[in-house]
Amino acid sequence: MNLFEINIAIVCFIVGNFLGLNYSYNKYPFPYVENKIDMLALILSILGGILLNTPLYDLGILLLSFPFGMRPGYGRIEFILGLSLAIILYLVKKWMLIGNI
């Protein structure tokens, strides 16, 4: 990964954080956390976790950082699920590569 790709990934992460923060302020005008899963954030996080392990990892970073950037307390479950999926897929991919050698 060269410096340009790293910079694009950082920009995607920051943009995803801003989009998530803006979304949470528009969708949830009240200052407290309700114990429910936001389906849009969950779908974006899962898709981001999957794309993080493909050549479209920049888009995956943007989508995974969306729930991460929501207000404190909002999007935490969605982000954890997406990140967990990304880590599991990464480990499976590494395990399959080691098994083929």
Rank of each mutant, 00 (worst) to 15 (best):
L59Y: 08
I87S: 09
G75D: 04
L56I: 06
I8F: 09
Y90W: 11
G48M: 04
A41D: 04
G99Y: 14
I61N: 02
Y90M: 13
Y23T: 03
T54W: 07
L44D: 01
N53V: 08
F18D: 03
D38I: 01
V92P: 05
D38G: 02
L83I: 11
L56T: 00
K36C: 02
L89N: 04
V15L: 11
A86F: 06
L19M: 12
E78N: 03
Y90K: 11
T54M: 08
R71I: 00
G75S: 06
I50W: 08
G48T: 05
I87T: 12
N7T: 15
N2V: 07
L63F: 12
F30C: 06
L59E: 05
L52S: 13
R76C: 07
G16D: 04
I14R: 04
M96Q: 15
L91D: 09
L62I: 04
G69L: 02
I98A: 15
L97H: 13
I37P: 01
Y74G: 01
W95Q: 13
L21D: 14
F30D: 15
L52N: 10
M1P: 14
M96N: 14
Y32K: 10
I87M: 11
A9E: 08
E34V: 12
I98Q: 14
N100H: 12
L64R: 03
I46F: 06
L64Q: 06
L83E: 07
L44P: 02
R76L: 11
E34G: 10
M96G: 01
G69P: 02
P55N: 13
I46Q: 03
I6E: 14
F68T: 01
P67I: 04
I80Y: 10
Y32V: 11
L3A: 13
N17W: 02
F18H: 07
I101H: 14
L42C: 04
L85W: 04
F30P: 00
F68R: 04
G82W: 03
L97Q: 15
I6Q: 14
L40T: 09
N100V: 13
L56Q: 09
L81W: 07
I98S: 14
V11R: 00
K36M: 05
N7K: 12
D38V: 03
I88D: 06
